[in-house]
Every structure is written in structure tokens, then in C-alpha cells.
Write a protein that binds this DNA or RNA. Structure first.
Length: 337
DNA sequence: AAGTAAATATGTGAGGGCGT
DNA sequence: ACGCCCTCACATATTTACTT
């Protein structure tokens, strides 16, 4: 089930769209024109509100909804006819737009609170397919991009763990082996393996970055990659939420067409970083066509095991390091516009 | 030096999809 | 037809950096 935090942020943003005088009245009214919301969810909201544990999210989310309802690029003061909440269920197929709310069948709103994560994908999807479509190949990315050094590192790990049932080849690990390694290596890397892991991690990062840069050799390819990284979609949508400090963020996500009309991409780079776990940095330099000012968008990708060391295949977490409101392609929404 | 904020690293539950 | 695996969306723990 979605955490109560997520539920509050999404629904209360939706409540803010209706133009009630304040949050108390909106909660009391339980507007019928919010789709997919039953009384149990409203009860949970009321309880959470009474418990006063999530005050900041309640007020930020409500204010975000109110501002979008008034904004010129938003509802311009019209009362919504229908607000649909996507709810805790995942969309049936691959979805390009991470929308949590839909207003009048048209306006798509994504609610994002305290997260700088753009994607959480498989390394194949990111570095091999350039986010273009779901990866068709899976498997251990670490063994794929750094076969020799990852094997050497595994040999060291095997000495350290001293489990005779572990195979000599890292590619021969099965699910039980991986579970055993996971519990044997819980927490930080043991001191004796830390340095070796850093070396392998750096190589994994460098090779992943160069693999993707080879796959996307033309400027067109790289511009498309940037669009995908930033989750620009064929249709515009809106992000309402708060940054890590709790300050509100509100912006409209341009389509690639809008983006190209407004910005020219000068260059896109990606390189491996020497940073503990495998980390790949990326940076795009664009020029605003209106006033020729340069703008930079940057972020990084962590390639890591998501469920413990050696357990399962690695995943690639893509972070945005540029503040949301400074990103070319994310147009801030203020009370005035 | 202690306290706090930011950055980094690791962990978790859910559920759809896909291989068997 | 079903169970495991992978992806998704954060949550939480630990380190490091910065103040006072």
C-alpha cells in the first residue's frame, strides 16, 4: 500500500483544486467529484490530519492545488468537473508520464515530495537502451561492463566470506548463493574489501558511461536522451510538490517540441565518477533561444544492488542535481502565471 | 568539540510481468 | 496458471561537511 505520506500529498493536492475556503472545509466536504476515492481513504486522511503528524505536507499540498487552480497555465479559476486519483495501483503498461492526478480528463499532475529521483530503472534500460524502451536483456550489469575486475573482486569476496558452496565464477551465482552473500555482507563493506570495491565501482561507472555515449553518438540521439532523462513527454504535464527542504515546487514539464523551440542543446556529457559506489555523472548544456543565456542541467546515476549486496540484479537510480526550478524544460508556475 | 545539516549509502514493500 | 524476479517509489541509516 502507498505510504500515508504519499496518499496525503496526492489527494490533498487534488482537494486544493476545488476552491474550498480552506483544507478543513475541503476535508469535511469529501467532494464526490474526486474519482477512485472511497470513504476509507477519506477516513485515513481525517485521522492523519487529526494526528497532526504530517502538517507540513497537508499545508504545502493544499496550497499547491490552490495555486494550480488559479494559475493561468493551470485551471485559471475554473472549478474542476472531475479529479481522478490514480490511487495506489500501478498503471497497466509502461507509462511515460508519472501522473498521480488527472483533472477533467486532460490535465495531468504528478505529485513529488522530497525526492530528486527521476528514474529507478534497470542498468540495461539506461545504459544500453538509452531509456528508449524497456530493456529486453537482463542479467548482472556489473559482470557485463566490467567482467574481469568484477570477477577478481568476487574472488576476494569469496575468500572473505569463506562459504565453500559458493561457485568460483561470479556468473554462476544462483539465487541461494546470492541470498547467502547478501546476509554475509549486510551493512557496509568490510574494511578489507572497501578499496577493491571502489576500484571496481569506478570501472563499472566509466564503462557504463562510455557504453551509453557510444550508443548515442549523434547530437540528436543525445538530445533525445536528455528528454527522456528529464521525463519530457509527448503531452505536457505538471509537477506539484516540495523539494528536500520542504519548499514548494511547482512547474510545467515541456514537451520535446516546446523544448526545442525554446532551447538549443549545445552538448551532453556523461562520465564515470570515483565515488564509493558506481556513480555516473551527466550534464547538459543548453542555450535559451530567447535571450541566448546558457543553462546547465546536471544529475547522476547510481548503479547499485537494491536488495543487498549480490542479491538480485543491480538497478540504476537516476538523480536530478539541478534544482527543479532551474531546469531547462521545467517551467515554474507562480501565482501570477 | 559538539551539534546539525547535507550528502551518500543501504533497505524495503508492492505488484505487474514474464518465464516455466 | 503461477510463482519468482524485476522495477518502482520512496524510506531510513550512516558519513561527511559545515557551523557555532
Amino acid at each position: 500500500m502507498a505510504t500515508v505520506r504519499t496518499e496525503i500529498s496526492e489527494i490533498v493536492t487534488g482537494l486544493g483544486l476545488f476552491g474550498y475556503r480552506d483544507l478543513d472545509r475541503a476535508l469535511a466536504a469529501r467532494p464526490r467529484s474526486i474519482g477512485n476515492l472511497d470513504d476509507r481513504v477519506f477516513d485515513r486522511l481525517d485521522n492523519a490530519y487529526a494526528a497532526k503528524k504530517h502538517d507540513e505536507i497537508f499545508s504545502t499540498a493544499y496550497a499547491n492545488g490552490e495555486i494550480f487552480a488559479r494559475a493561468n497555465v493551470g485551471l485559471r479559476g475554473r472549478v474542476p468537473w472531475l479529479v481522478e486519483w490514480k490511487g495506489p495501483h500501478r498503471p497497466p503498461a509502461y507509462e511515460q508520464i508519472p501522473a498521480d492526478l488527472r483533472v477533467d480528463h486532460v490535465y495531468l499532475i504528478s505529485c513529488k515530495y522530497g525526492s530528486d529521483i527521476l528514474h529507478n530503472a534497470s542498468p540495461w534500460h539506461v545504459f544500453d537502451r538509452a531509456l528508449a524502451e524497456r530493456a529486453r536483456r537482463g542479467g548482472d550489469w556489473f559482470a557485463e561492463v566490467a567482467p574481469e575486475s568484477f570477477q577478481e573482486f568476487y574472488t576476494e569476496v569469496r575468500k572473505h566470506v569463506t562459504d565453500p558452496s559458493l561457485p568460483a565464477l561470479v556468473t554462476a551465482l544462483d539465487a541461494d548463493h546470492r541470498a547467502a552473500l547478501r546476509s554475509a555482507l549486510k551493512g557496509r563493506w568490510p574494511r578489507s574489501l572497501r578499496y577493491d570495491w571502489e576500484i571496481v565501482g569506478f570501472e563499472i561507472a566509466r564503462n557504463s558511461a562510455s557504453h551509453l555515449m557510444e550508443r548515442t553518438s549523434t547530437r540528436r540521439d543525445r538530445e533525445e536522451l536528455l528528454w527522456r532523462l528529464l521525463r519530457l513527454a509527448a503531452s505536457p504535464y505538471f509537477v506539484l510538490g516540495a523539494d528536500r527542504q520542504g519548499l514548494p515546487i511547482r512547474y510545467r514539464v515541456l514537451t520535446p517540441w516546446d523544448f526545442r523551440n525554446r532551447y538549443r542543446m549545445r552538448r551532453f556529457d556523461m562520465w564515470g565518477d570515483h565515488a564509493g559506489q558506481p556513480t555516473v555523472r551527466w550534464r547538459a548544456e543548453v542555450v535559451d533561444r530567447e535571450d541566448s543565456t546558457p543553462r546547465t542541467v546536471e544529475g547522476h546515476v547510481e548503479i547499485r544492488w537494491s536488495h543487498g549486496k549480490f542479491a538480485g540484479v543491480p538497478e540504476a537510480k537516476i538523480y536530478l542535481d539541478t534544482p527543479h526550478h532551474d531546469v531547462a524544460g521545467y517551467e515554474p508556475i507562480n501565482s501570477g502565471n
